[in-house]
Design a protein around this nucleic acid. Structure first.
Length: 197
DNA sequence: TCATTAATTCGCC
DNA sequence: GGCGAATTAATGA
């Protein structure tokens, strides 16, 4: 287990974060590798302080922005706790030493970073679409891909309108208008404000 | 439960 | 497609 590998080293420490706390900020030089034990965090880009783009949501038993341990660049993004979190941190030098000794850790990182890359490419595709409704449909398809039941309207979207806006780069009003349009076109259903796709 | 804050929706430009 | 205001939902004391 990755968790044991990281904890057995006395080089690591566990830090508690409250919901909303910033774990690292864009522009900072990474000094630590972070691994979430408990809770959920988002990795975002910011546009002033009004708008944000959700780049990734990481949850328990996952690292946070793993690429940063290898990229040797300042963080291009900011990480914020979405819930109360318990997060392990280990200095990057120590982490890299640990990686060099563990096949399991190497495989984990290869998997996780590949997965992130895949997500990024889908995301780029979403952003590349011109119309709001196309962006929303692509996001819904992406979210539904792991949903077993492929029949229409079987998938309840748990995201808020704001979440969808933050994931697609659209404004909330645009999301609301497009979602209504898509309902008229019978592409999705709205029951109790929730979207079924 | 009440108060505060966040999300959603609507009308207007 | 964005802004501000009104409404509604969620959250916290």
């Amino acid at each position: 287990m990755i968790k044991e590998l990281l904890t057995k080293s006395d080089l690591s420490e566990t830090i508690k974060y409250s919901s909303g706390d910033i774990i690292f900020s864009a522009g900072e030089r990474p000094s630590y590798f972070f691994y979430i034990f408990k809770g959920k965090a988002k990795v975002i880009s910011r546009d002033g302080d009004s708008r944000e783009l959700i780049q990734e949501v990481s949850t328990a038993e996952e690292g946070l922005a793993e690429f940063s341990a290898f990229a040797n660049e300042p963080y291009p993004v900011t990480a914020v706790a979405l819930t109360d979190c318990s997060i392990l941190r280990i200095r990057i030098d120590d982490f890299l030493t640990l990686v060099s000794t563990s096949e399991e850790l190497k495989l984990y990182l290869l998997n996780k970073i590949s997965d992130s890359l895949y997500n990024k490419l889908i995301q780029a595709d979403i952003h590349f679409k011109r119309s709001g409704s196309e962006k929303i449909i692509m996001l819904l398809n992406y979210l539904k891909r792991k949903h077993d039941d492929k029949t229409p309207f079987s998938f309840k979207v748990l995201l808020s309108r704001k979440n969808i806006a933050d994931l697609t780069g659209l404004r909330i009003e645009t999301v609301i208008r497009n979602v209504k349009k898509l309902e008229k076109e019978k592409v999705l259903r709205i029951i109790n404000h929730k979207i079924y796709y």
